[in-house]
Amino acid sequence: MVRRQRIGAGFYAQLFGLMVLTFVVHEAGHWAAGRALGYEAYFSLNSAGVRDPSIPVEHMIAVRAGGVVVTLLQALLGLALVLTRGSLAAYAVLFSAAFMRFMAAVMTMMQPNDEAAITLAMGWGRWSGHALVVAVLVGMTIWGARHLRIGWKANLLAWAVASVAVTAVVGLDMALQGGL
């Protein structure tokens, strides 16, 4: 185990930027999956997909899974760098992935997000996908925090910063789409 990490303003600024980048990379995963399947795809800060309304369910699942898989890979990379290098920046990468998918689960109460859309299409219910993905990501984040000896106060402030970043991304995306 490494010594307790001293976390300052630079970490939180980095976390904010990485939260925004997490959205971009996640949506790029959806876009890339749609393009790989041969569809005309769209991409914004907080949404991506294909324009074909008659997409087969298997392709919809693949497109939805594209973003989730990219986010899981992001978290694996972050955890690997936390464990091998003791990287605080990598912890921000890991935290961003977990926070984003947790918030996606929360938003599923209003409209099924990626994991819910996938598991609903597969007949597994609304929450099973979110439960699995969020449990894995939060577990990895706890592992990383313990390894770096990051305490609850730092994580609480990280939660607040991530919340502001998510709000900024969603608001900016709505403004760019003409929804504000």
Score class of each variant (00 low, 15 high):
95 F>T: 02
135 A>H: 01
134 V>L: 07
176 L>D: 12
93 V>C: 07
30 H>P: 01
59 H>C: 07
56 P>Y: 07
84 T>D: 15
143 W>Y: 12
97 A>R: 04
44 S>K: 00
137 L>Y: 04
84 T>L: 15
135 A>L: 12
143 W>C: 14
7 I>S: 04
169 V>W: 04
23 F>N: 09
24 V>A: 06
54 S>W: 14
147 H>R: 15
37 L>A: 08
126 R>W: 08
143 W>V: 09
158 A>K: 08
108 T>S: 12
164 V>T: 09
18 L>F: 13
122 M>L: 15
146 R>A: 14
45 L>S: 03
139 G>H: 01
27 E>R: 00
59 H>M: 12
115 E>G: 01
115 E>L: 02
62 A>K: 06
19 M>L: 10
72 L>G: 11
37 L>Y: 08
119 T>R: 01
69 V>I: 14
137 L>E: 01
73 L>K: 08
83 L>N: 11
119 T>G: 00
41 A>N: 01
24 V>L: 07
111 Q>V: 13
114 D>C: 06
103 M>N: 13
65 A>S: 11
175 A>V: 15
134 V>N: 00
68 V>P: 02
46 N>Y: 06
139 G>Y: 02
120 L>M: 10
159 W>A: 12
83 L>T: 11
163 S>R: 10
20 V>Q: 11
57 V>M: 10
153 K>D: 15
59 H>T: 05
97 A>Y: 05
5 Q>W: 06
165 A>E: 03
